[in-house]
């Protein structure tokens, strides 16, 4: 197996929609408690209802899962979730900014917006990962990341609960690493062991 290099990587962004909770859990569970890179997760979720997303994800990982707060400094070993009904952006000083503006592709949080924001601030020091979903949110965001030279993973559509999102991302972007969830997790885990 070819080992990837995580040297210089400062953030990992994960997006998904339908089936995404299970898919994200699958990746998070491969990461060790001392994983040195913060993870930012954008999942489409219901609004105006109580949510158990945080506790569900926490069960799958040794990282500390929390909802991103506005102006919070981004740090490891946290896995941050975009809060329901807000867009999640990043400021130049690497703190979170919340935004309650129009939905993008009927979504708030929008995967595109977070990925674009991360591309702008982190450039190729970011990794983007797009998972299962039933619309094409994330494809534009992944393009922004690819343009800055960031490495991107897309879940193999044939293994995804819903194919539309990963398929759209692959169609509109060259050079994404397309593979099943377990392999994405394994690559990240092994890569970390390399830099330690």
């Amino acid at each position: 197996m070819k080992l990837i290099n995580l040297k210089g990587i400062e953030i990992i962004a994960i997006g998904g929609s339908v089936g995404g909770i299970k898919a994200v859990s699958e990746i998070l569970k491969s990461l060790p408690a001392d994983f040195p890179i913060p993870v930012v997760i954008v999942l489409h979720r219901l609004r105006n209802v109580p949510s158990s997303l945080q506790s569900v994800l926490q069960h799958s990982t040794k990282l500390r899962v929390k909802e991103a707060d506005e102006k919070e400094t981004i740090a490891a070993p946290f896995a941050y979730i975009a809060p329901a009904n807000y867009h999640l952006l990043i400021e130049a000083d690497r703190t979170f900014a919340l935004d309650y503006s129009e939905t993008v592709k009927y979504s708030r949080p929008s995967i595109d917006l977070t990925f674009e924001s991360i591309a702008e601030i982190y450039g190729k020091a970011a990794i983007g990962i797009l998972l299962t979903g039933a619309n094409d949110d994330g494809a534009n965001g992944l393009s922004s990341l690819r343009k800055t030279g960031a490495m991107c993973y897309v879940q193999d559509p044939d293994t995804a609960f819903a194919k539309t999102m990963p398929q759209a991302a692959i169609t509109s972007n060259f050079g994404c690493r397309v593979m099943p969830l377990a392999k994405i997790g394994l690559e990240l885990k092994n890569a970390v062991h390399q830099i330690n």
Binding site: L89, I90, E91, A92, A97, D99, S101, L113, S117
Partner: peptide
């Protein structure tokens, strides 16, 4: 105003 959101607008 915070810049991330304002720049986007």
């Amino acid at each position: 105003y915070s810049r991330a959101s304002f720049t986007r607008r």
